[in-house]
Design a protein around this nucleic acid. Structure first.
Length: 109
DNA sequence: GGCCTGACTTTAG
DNA sequence: GCTAAAGCCAGGC
């Protein structure tokens, strides 16, 4: 898989995330067949978070923490977007992450 | 080519 | 809760 294909795959998965749910970098990486590329997923999102087609605010780390909020213009923007979709965020962390977590592997087939 | 950094993850203490 | 370390790989210097 080339870098461009990887980036494209990341976009596809992120766009599939349903409203009111969120997923992690590791799960996305796993879903596209590159489980060791979590950091690259973050890199890709940092260059595409401004694209309205990509709901990058629904992507957090494995613990449901908003580790990527720094990439947004407003540090609170990511949290506000999540809350507006029904996701409860406390102290930069998604509340009840276990039930909010969306696993791409169960949706892509 | 080496070295450092980064929206990461997991294990260990 | 915390930090540390090892894995991973692209990009910048």
């Amino acid at each position: 898989m080339t870098r461009d294909e990887f980036i494209e795959a990341v976009h596809e998965v992120v766009k599939m995330i349903p409203s009111g749910r969120a997923t992690s970098y590791g799960l996305i990486a796993k879903a596209i067949g590159c489980p060791t590329m979590q950091r690259k997923v973050g890199k890709v999102l940092s260059t595409t978070h401004s694209s309205l087609d990509i709901p990058a605010h629904r992507v957090v780390n494995s613990q449901g923490i908003l580790s990527g909020r720094a990439a947004f213009s407003n540090l609170n923007e990511m949290q506000e977007r999540l809350e507006s979709e029904g996701i409860v965020v406390v102290n930069n962390k998604i509340k009840n992450w276990k039930s909010v977590c969306w696993n791409p592997l169960e949706e892509i087939y």
